[in-house]
Amino acid sequence: MTSFHSIGDLSRSYQLRLGQNGLRTKLDRLTQEMISGVKSDIPKALGGDLAGISHIESRLQLLTTFQQNASEAQNRLTTMQAALEQVYGVVDDLGPRLLSEPNISGEHDLRARADSTKQDFRSMFSVLNTSIGGQYLFAGSRTDSAPLGSFDVMLAELTSTVAGVTTAADIADRIDAWFDAPAGMGGFADRIYQGDDNGSTRFSISPDRQIDKSLTANSTALRDTLKGMAIIAYASEAGAAIDTATLRDLFSEAGTRLLKGAAGLISAQADLGRQQAIVTQAQTRNSAETAALSIARTNLIGADPFETVTTLEETEAKIQSLYAITARLSRLNLTDYLS
């Protein structure tokens, strides 16, 4: 038969295990609360009313998305500003030079300047094809492909466009018309520009603010710069087929357009600067609202760190005491068994 002492030992062992499991569960809960700073049983902490905390959590998630959008928009705007600054640095210096050099330079120097300018224009293509993380910045809504195609194809197109005309004014007018031709008319927008000016480029950066990144490599703000550079690039490509007098006139035509282009670039940079300011303001407001909501969230479901640590230490002490009692009882039971 099972002795009375055996039944008592089994019951006591069961109770000790229950106590150990309960304390371990409590220890795990308190440890998690201490790490996360949030109460483990939120419905209990709020008395079953979850409407307020649900609204706060949803708003915080929304603000996180807005802040990510704002950060991406700011990165893009900053990089676009840097690209325009590079272009402006070339144009601001080159425009006045093209207007003055025909009066003071010989043919050899003018042709060397034309060749150098063609290379600057080629580099400008690369600048306007700038991308971040595979997203091309001056391509409008078609961000997965570079906005400007082959530079050499463009030179061939320019040569074809001006075929049959001989004066600098007519050459410049043909190049202007090619760059300004609407989509579908076989000009720059069809043959070289590969972006999309019609799709949405809008960023939602806060609950009440959006920005539209509409500047592209096909924008009017850049068109005069492209025209001026293209005139000299054509002159370089044509070489000796253009006489010295026509070359001098083409320099003047290009210089005039680049001066106008510099003004367009300044305007584009100013627009980007205004957008950057709007994004910065939105980021500040998003951060302020996030901080306020985080405080409100903590007030509702936050675990008091002092109380949690105190209870955690008490629980650990109880577990240690329970282990000590268990070990002592085990030794006593072994003594009874041997006696």
Rank of each mutant, 00 (worst) to 15 (best):
H5I: 09
G8M: 15
G19N: 12
G22Y: 00
E33Y: 09
S36Y: 00
K39E: 09
G52E: 06
G52R: 09
I53C: 00
H55G: 11
S58C: 02
Q61E: 07
L63K: 06
F66V: 05
S71M: 09
R76S: 11
T78H: 05
D92A: 13
D92P: 06
R97M: 14
L98R: 03
S100I: 13
S100R: 13
D120L: 14
F121I: 07
R122M: 12
S131M: 10
S141L: 01
L155Y: 07
T161V: 14
V165K: 11
A169I: 13
R174C: 10
A177Y: 06
F179Y: 08
D180W: 04
A181D: 05
P182Q: 08
M185I: 01
F188G: 02
A189T: 10
R191T: 08
I192G: 07
I192S: 07
G195P: 06
D197H: 02
N198K: 10
P207A: 02
D208N: 13
I211R: 10
L222M: 06
D224T: 01
D224W: 03
T225M: 13
M229D: 06
A240D: 14
A241L: 04
A245S: 15
D249I: 05
F251T: 04
A254G: 07
L259F: 03
G261E: 03
Q269I: 08
Q269C: 08
Q269R: 14
R274E: 15
E289Y: 01
S294I: 02
N299M: 00
I301A: 00
E307P: 07
T308N: 11
A317Y: 12
I319F: 03
A324M: 15
A324S: 15
I325E: 05
A327N: 12
R328V: 07
L329E: 01
D336Q: 09
S339W: 00
